[in-house]
Structures are given as structure tokens and as C-alpha cells.
Design a binder for these strands. Structure first.
Length: 571
RNA sequence: GGGCCGGUAGCUCAGUUAGGGAGAGCGUCCGGCUUUUAACCGGACGGUCGGGGGUUCGAAUCCCUCCCGGCCCGCCA
């Protein structure tokens, strides 16, 4: 076998870890012409796009994400949307037509009561705030057959889907929401179900390699009970002629609990039931023509391998290009809605600009990372640096390569030279005052806003202030000071009071912030006070606290009469 | 127990494609701004690249092994 063609050792191994340090390799293309597989990309979405492109997909290229409705649409779910989005945008830039779809697996039964729910505004509420009894009575039914606990939409599923749609909108990602229930209703899965039920032995054989419970009486189809409306698990007969199944509404075991069946026995059509997940997922690939799908690491070793097998050997289709993303933690802990460790998109957008959130999801999907709310300033700093790098202003080759490629997809535009980003912590300082004009003045004095900065840039820069303010309040950190409009309850020693009066006179005479700052030291010495003691008096008067921002310069920006009166403890 | 994925400075992370200088920002400390008071500037400190072994002239990077964390290996999704 003197073979001169260097064959790649292993053919494609179906590992879903397409971006792993080890698995990147790839294109099992013959080397003679073509696709340069090993080409390095600074942006992971380009690597994924290469793999998709190498398979010469039909257009439109279909990128899918999906979730099962649960209580809360949290930031983890956004992976499904944003990861696919970046790949979609890269492919669009390469000239392809791309559809990004998002399935809501809403024909799944509600198996247990969620501890927490998100209302239409994305706020998390407890079960006590909704009609929990109605939910409890509907255990076992498809989400689309359960009333919206908030009484607003036509169903629990619709409520949840609306949350995800709203989140995608807020992040500027156009996705096509697809209801699984509707796909069944319109017959999209008819062929897949027929295929499965026509070859039960073959399906069982394939499935049994992954699921122990598959025996020769197992029928992978779950009819909806015509009597009680629950998803059933016991099919007693299949009639391929009439395309119906006979079923019995038996009990369903969920964890340690049992959802009681109603014992009804009936007949269901192919559209009055659903495939179990391991078959439904590959059936979706077939029905929707999916070319790429990102998914969390929980699927990587479970349903993905079986899905690949079933796609090829049951449905006769090639599975999509996969991509496993690592889960991120929130404040160092796993996301958990029952434990209260979740954050929704609207909540996060009270703290961060959408572009920063998009940036977070443009970072490498395979790295385990933490979203640390207390240190959001670090994330924003990193984004700002990333943005400067995109504009070629950072002396860091690696970062610049990544930023130049990824930034347009993150921001939706090329970097704009006039743009102003206030450092997040500085924005938090500005948040100590309410007056928008004063905030702007402070930013100008500090040199962040120039004479010729266009109005749009000023406006957008200042949008960060409100968010940083909210952050300071939420985390009650060292920026959580509030300029006091009313005189706090204070009392000072005579010497301190005298010093304050002197300072008041100085301010009244008209001096700028820098001069006031200097004068504070002079005044303290003149009255034989510790400088710290004098500053503390000032902070007490203006912030009702013992610390704060650089006081003199801060006071210089405030209305003179107000400062003078406050220093004299008059108002 | 088995498989997969992660583990780089106090924190958040880049660097692993293709082996060659261990890096950035923040924090800390010191200093500067006629001034100890969290905004600005400069500097320093800070790491057994999870541990060990191997290949190599040379390893964060390749190989083996072990440790830690997460996920999966029942059902469900």
C-alpha cells in the first residue's frame, strides 16, 4: 500500500465539539482541490461557517435553536439564539441566504411545577403570585394546552415563547419562532411518524443502543389522551392503514412522583400525539432542513449521538453541523431558577447595553466563564477595549484580530471614531446625581466628551449612566452614593462647623472645582482639623455617608447656592 | 465506575490553529496631579499555565497519567 495521498487518519467522528482545541481538525475532503480546512480564524463563528460551507448546503441555510418551555426564560437560553446568530451573520456576509429558526418544544408535557416564573416583563415571580392550582391540575398536559398562568396569552407555551421572542428582539436578533405543536397540527411530522411506526423493530434496535428501557413492546409515540388531554405513554396497537394508534391513559412516572392517568382507552391520529425527544429532535432536522444547531453540553453525550444515529438510520438524513457550548455560571454558581440564581435578559439590560450582552456571547463558546454581576464593570471594560481594538487603537495583535473580525457582528456596524464610551465606574460616579445636564457637564469636564462630539454620541454615552447607577444600587457597592436633596440629620463640633462656614464663603465667592478641592485642605489645616475628618463632614452633608467621589471637584459642578446653603447646614 | 468538556495572576480573561518572549485589563501597593478621600496619570508587586512524567535543543501548546469542577452514561428534555 504505498499510498502517497495523506489520508486524514480518522474520518469525521461526529463529535459535537467542533470548536474544541482537539477536535478542530476536519475536513475530510480530499486534499487535491479545495477547501482549505485548517485555515485559522480569529472568530469562532468563521470556523463553524467553514464546516457548514464545506457541506455545500442548499439555500436557504437553516440554523436552528430550541428550548423546552419552563418557568423562566433566562440568560442561558440566550445561547441558543446568539450563538446561532453569529454563525448566521457570518454566512450571510459570505453571500448565503440564511433562516434562523427557533423551536419551542411546546408539545412536551408539563412534568412538574416550576418554582419560579417570569412574567411578561421578564420579572421573576414565585408560584404564589399566579394561579398555581391551575398549573397543578394540568400536570402531564402539553404546554400549549395549559392556560397562561398570567392570564394574558392563549397558553403557558405562548407566554413562554413570547418571552424568548421579546428577548431576541431586545438583542436585535431576528428569529423565526416555530411552535412544535403547530408543526404536528399541520402534519409536518406525519412522514416522520409514519416512518417510525412502519419500522418499529428497526427503530427499537437503533434506540436500544442508547436507552435501556427500549424493549420489543416499546412504541415511540405519545398520543394525547382524548379524554383528559394528558400526554400518554402506553400505545397498545398501531394501524398504518388508517394512520392511527390505540392507547391507554396510564400513570406517568416523573422522578419520584406519579402523574395519574385517567385510564381512558382511545384512538389517536398521528397528529394527536408526539414523538419522544430522541426521535423528535432528528425529525425536526429533517422537517426543517436544519444545517446547523448549537446546543448546551447536556446534549453532547446524551441525545446528540443517538440523534445522529437516528437521523441517518431511521430518517435517512444527515444531521446538522453541531456545536456544543459550555454553560456559564452566574456569580460563580450554576444557573438555577429554583435556587433563584438566574437573570433574565430584561434584567441584565437594566445594567448593560445590548451591545455588551451581544459581546458576551461572541466570546468563545467552549470556555467556561462566569458572569459576575458585582464586577460587571470588568465586562464592560473588556468590551470597551474590544471596541477600541476593532478601531485599531489597541496594541494587542490577538485581540485586534478577533475584534476586527467580530466587532461588526457584535455592534452591527463598523467602529465609529466619534463614539464615546464612559468607563463604567465613571458612569456610576455620574449616577450619583440625577440631573442629566449635570451628568453631561461632569463628563465634559473630565474630558470624555469633547467640544466637537456629535449629539448622538453624547446621548448614547450617557445612556450608560442610568445602567451603571442601577448597578450601583443593585449591588450596593462603593458607587452607591446619592446626592442628598434635603439636609441630612447632622451635627458637628464647633471647629468643624466653623471650617464648613469658611468653605461656604469660599464657594460663594465663586471658584471652580479644583480650587474648592484645594481650599478644603487649606481650610482643614487652618482649623487644625484632620483632613479626613473634614472630608467626612462634607460627605455627610452631601451624600449622608462617610465617603464618596472627589468632593471639591464634585461640588464645583453643582449649583452654587445649593452648595453654599448646604455647607451652612441651612438646606 | 466509564465517556465528554473545562482548569492560565487576587478577579475577569487572551494566548493552544502552526512548540520558541507567560500576557492584558481590573484590583492591590507605591508615587504624581501647589492636595491621604475611590473619576485622571505613572510605576511596581503579583503565576509550579491544576499536579507529575514523557517527546524535544526548546512545552501553557504535543503524548501519557493523576487531581479538581461541570455534563452525560435511568426517565425526561
Amino acid at each position: 500500500m504505498s499510498d502517497d495521498s495523506p489520508h486524514t487518519d480518522s474520518p469525521h467522528d461526529d463529535s459535537p465539539h467542533v470548536l474544541s482545541t482537539r477536535a478542530v481538525g476536519s475536513a475530510d475532503e480530499t486534499s487535491d482541490e479545495g477547501v482549505e480546512a485548517g485555515e485559522f480564524h480569529a472568530f469562532w463563528a468563521d470556523e463553524v461557517a467553514d464546516i457548514i460551507e464545506a457541506r455545500e448546503p442548499d439555500e436557504p441555510i437553516v440554523i436552528k435553536g430550541g428550548v423546552s418551555p419552563s418557568g423562566v426564560a433566562h440568560l442561558g437560553n440566550v445561547n441558543e439564539v446568539m450563538r446561532g446568530y453569529f454563525v448566521a451573520e457570518v454566512l450571510r456576509e459570505r453571500g448565503y441566504e440564511v433562516r434562523q429558526v427557533f423551536t419551542s418544544d411546546d408539545k412536551d408535557p408539563l412534568r412538574k411545577l416550576p418554582r419560579k416564573l417570569a412574567n411578561a416583563d421578564g420579572e421573576i415571580v414565585g408560584l404564589g403570585d399566579v394561579d398555581a392550582g391551575a398549573l397543578g391540575r394540568n400536570l402531564g398536559k402539553p404546554y400549549t394546552a395549559i392556560p397562561d398562568p398570567f392570564g394574558e396569552r392563549e397558553s403557558y407555551a405562548a407566554h413562554f415563547a413570547a418571552l424568548l421572542q421579546a428577548d431576541a428582539d431586545r438583542l436585535g436578533v431576528p428569529v423565526e419562532m416555530i411552535s412544535n405543536t403547530e408543526l404536528y397540527a399541520e402534519g409536518a411530522f406525519d412522514d416522520a411518524i409514519r416512518t417510525v411506526l412502519s419500522d418499529l423493530d428497526g427503530v427499537r434496535e437503533t434506540l436500544s443502543a442508547y436507552q435501556d428501557k427500549v424493549d420489543d413492546s416499546y412504541v415511540p409515540f405519545n398520543p394525547i389522551c382524548g379524554d383528559c388531554g394528558k400526554v400518554t405513554e402506553t400505545v397498545t396497537a398501531v394501524d398504518l392503514e388508517t394512520e392511527t394508534v390505540e392507547y391507554a391513559c396510564t400513570d406517568m412516572t416523573v422522578g419520584g412522583d406519579v402523574i395519574a392517568g385517567c385510564d381512558h382507552e382511545g384512538t389517536a391520529t398521528f397528529r394527536e400525539g408526539k414523538l419522544p425527544w430522541r426521535l423528535e429532535w432528528p425529525a425536526q432536522w429533517d422537517v426543517l432542513g436544519v444545517d446547523f444547531e448549537p446546543f448546551g453540553k447536556d446534549h453532547a453525550e446524551g441525545s446528540w449521538p443517538s440523534g445522529v444515529d437516528i437521523a441517518r438510520n431511521v430518517f435517512g438524513v444527515e444531521p446538522p453541523v453541531p456545536m456544543v457550548y459550555e454553560w456559564f455560571t452566574l456569580d460563580g454558581e450554576a444557573l438555577s431558577s429554583s435556587a433563584g440564581n438566574v437573570i433574565t435578559v430584561p434584567e441584565l439590560l437594566e445594567l448593560l447595553e445590548p451591545v455588551v450582552v451581544r459581546y458576551f456571547f461572541a466570546l468563545h463558546p467552549k470556555k467556561a466563564r462566569d458572569l459576575d454581576i458585582a464586577r460587571l464593570d470588568q465586562l464592560v471594560d473588556r468590551f470597551d477595549r474590544f471596541e477600541r481594538a476593532a478601531a485599531g487603537e489597541v496594541n494587542d495583535e490577538e485581540l485586534t484580530a478577533f475584534a476586527e473580525r467580530a466587532y461588526p457582528f457584535v455592534a452591527g456596524e463598523e467602529p465609529r471614531a466619534e463614539r464615546v464610551r464612559l468607563p463604567y465606574t465613571f458612569a456610576a460616579v455620574l449616577g450619583m446625581v440625577d440631573d442629566p445636564a449635570l451628568r453631561e457637564q461632569l463628563a465634559r469636564d473630565e474630558g470624555h466628551i469633547q467640544e466637537d462630539t456629535p449629539a448622538w454620541a453624547v446621548e448614547e454615552a450617557l445612556e450608560r449612566v442610568e445602567r451603571a447607577r442601577t448597578w450601583a444600587e443593585r449591588t450596593d457597592n462603593e458607587y452607591n452614593y446619592r446626592l442628598q436633596t434635603d439636609l441630612p440629620d447632622v451635627s458637628f463640633e464647633d471647629d468643624v462647623a466653623a471650617a464648613l462656614d469658611d468653605l461656604a464663603a469660599f464657594v460663594e465667592a465663586g471658584h471652580d472645582g479644583e480650587a474648592i478641592q484645594s481650599e478644603m485642605y487649606e481650610t482643614a489645616r487652618a482649623h487644625d482639623l484632620e483632613v479626613g475628618e473634614f472630608f467626612e463632614a462634607g460627605y455627610r452633608l452631601f451624600f449622608d455617608d462617610t465617603q464618596g467621589p472627589r468632593l471639591g471637584e464634585f461640588l464645583g459642578e453643582l449649583e452654587r447656592e445649593y452648595v453654599v446653603a448646604r455647607l451652612r447646614r441651612e438646606a
